[in-house]
Design a protein around this nucleic acid. Structure first.
Lengths: 352, 352
DNA sequence: TCTCTTGCCGAAACCGGTTTCGGTGGTATC
DNA sequence: GATACCACCGAAACCGGTTTCGGCAAGAGA
């Protein structure tokens, strides 16, 4: 069915077959196909033609043993992490492997529950990956230190405290959060709370920075800032703490969608209605947000694209480009949904 | 830092180094380490000792070129699939790669948006995987036909219409669904609906079989069966259609959690309350189900364990065990939550 | 016309393993 | 005591590529 034109039975074509077909030696075929300069155009054409005729594709492991490159990107998923990133994993993986595939690379996935660094070391030692994508970067990330010292290429999804030697792709989340503040302030809110996530991760500081910038720009107080809300339960707890203050917020910004959904429960217990008494905007773009009542306004991240870009950046890093040239910042897109409004505070509605 | 004891500088130890260290030839080391019978115990001990001293680990790609095995499991995720399985992907992947790791294998992930079979063929052609895990099996699955013909080992997560030559791991979902029917019937429900998912996939028929068995056992009619509910919207549509009948159901069983959540909206529009006027049980165990009001009763699947088992089965399949010996059926665990009750129909409550 | 480059390619070594083949020494058999 | 057999290991081929090295022929310069 496939229609392979193997020179001999059903075996896959080897470089020897190509050499025979083209009437040159296998060494020459190798150099021709890999673009070495000391091959004439005519010979190169004969090699590529013969390769195409036979459907030749070099065997990755065979090249790996000489070149030391296996043309695979590594990704280690940490099962101990809180699962805020779970919903995106499929999109992200698809983007990564698709980006790798366009260059003929593959994606090697490993998981680590405890000894994360050991997992990386094993993959390096056994040459299962030429470089790594590091998701969920921490402010001071041990993986960065380790890979830096080992001289193994890597690219961050997120940023790092010390960007020296780091290539990265990230979302301009500070701008998004600043925008969120200004958006709510424009609607008349004067008491805007921010509920952050994990303090150890870089995203949290960056989002807080944006919040503080927005608050300053709007001339509002920054006394309603909390952290540590990672899921629905902790998000509810944070909301409860804030709503119980003497001068409670009328609007919330959450660093994480899933945590924001905890506000619904906290609000119900106090007979406050989101979209009327309270406004809330979050960040991530998880599918669940679209199904709450009212739906959750959020800054959505395109994780498929993130995977695509990270694969490209990492491959270029492995090929030797300078990390300083491999840094990209993309934007989150605002999904304007019901939860962002609080009719009590709308210009058309009640008082300020 | 790592403390490798490489015989020469920082280079990783090769089989030559081990041979030198043990005072035997590299061929003998290879045979000793791979358990060939024609090696004396004494020599084998010297080889393993030397290997341990040097921290030797064979280079996968080097073995691959001779043995034809790369010691990697392949997984192709189809991005075009509806995203009912997304929430589990992280757990599932973790299980798979962990299961692979225990045998020293790795997991190669690729994605396919259109040409799924082509993706498999490419991975086979380039020997990026020794076998495949096929998730979301269809009743008549083209991947099975292709891999069967190509002679490439595979293992199904789910079952197949023609089990010939198929190894698989699956959940005994028929029993779960049958139990669900009996559970609801015991609570006094006489009108029990079943809302299935994708008819092309095997899971749907198996779940329907269980439902019908349960209905027959309870002596109830099977006129409330619908299919095609894959997400919240289609789940709501199915619920609407059923509730609008002249003799509507008082209890629902959904084949998919996510679809079951669509019942909440349909019920609200009719002023029916789940946990009071209506009972619902679903299947999957998605995290979202725990946060609805009332929480969704469901048969939860341990996807991490599924990954673990599938990795083990596939590796054994690749090593040559007969597919008939590589079939496992696990059980879903019932999460008894609020949505399963309908106080109107409880023995303590109203009439039958 | 002769030498010196230079472009281009073949031959062979090499990468790190696995596998085949043959030979050695020791023990059992006649 | 000669032969057959067996357990065991060294030597070398092999897997499918890449890379080094050297030589040949053509063109440039004297």
């Amino acid at each position: 069915m496939g229609g392979r034109v193997g020179s001999r039975g059903d075996r896959r074509a080897t470089i020897q077959d190509v050499a025979r077909e083209a009437g040159i030696t296998k060494g020459t075929v190798s150099r021709a196909l890999n673009g070495h300069p000391d091959i004439s155009d005519a010979t190169r054409a004969r090699a590529t033609d013969a390769a195409a005729r036979l459907g030749y594709r070099p065997l990755g492991s065979a090249q790996a043993i000489r070149t030391g490159r296996c043309r695979a990107l590594g990704l280690v998923i940490e099962t101990s992490e809180h699962d805020a990133h779970r919903p995106f994993l499929a999109e992200f993986l698809a983007g990564l492997s698709q980006g790798a595939a366009t260059e003929g690379w593959t994606l090697t996935v490993a998981s680590a529950s405890e000894d994360t660094l050991g997992t990386y070391e094993m993959l390096i030692e056994e040459r299962k990956a030429d470089g790594f994508v590091l998701p969920r970067t921490r402010r001071d990330d041990p993986r960065v230190a380790m890979l830096r010292e080992a001289g193994v290429p890597f690219v961050l999804f997120g940023r790092h405290g010390d960007p020296e030697g780091c290539a990265w792709f990230d979302i301009d989340m500070a701008t998004a959060m600043r925008e969120a503040v200004l958006r709510l302030a424009r609607d008349g809110h004067r008491r805007i709370a921010f509920v952050g996530g994990s303090a150890a991760h870089t995203y949290n500081g960056l989002r807080e920075d944006g919040i503080r910038a927005g608050l300053a720009e709007a001339g509002l107080a920054d006394d309603l800032i909390l952290h540590g809300a990672l899921d629905r339960d902790t998000g509810e707890a944070a909301a409860t703490a804030l709503l119980d203050r003497t001068d409670p917020p009328t609007a919330f910004i959450y660093a994480i969608d899933l945590a924001a959904l905890g506000l619904w429960r906290a609000a119900r217990k106090r007979d406050l209605r989101i979209g009327e008494d309270l406004a809330v905007i979050a960040y991530d773009g998880t599918p669940e947000g679209a199904h709450s009542e009212p739906p959750l306004a959020t800054y959505a991240v395109d994780h498929h694209n993130a995977g695509l870009r990270l694969a490209d950046l990492l491959i270029r890093r492995i090929r030797g480009e300078a990390p300083e040239d491999l840094r990209e910042l993309a934007h989150a897109t605002y999904l304007d949904r019901g939860s962002a409004r609080a009719s009590k505070y709308q210009p058309t509605g009640g008082t300020t």
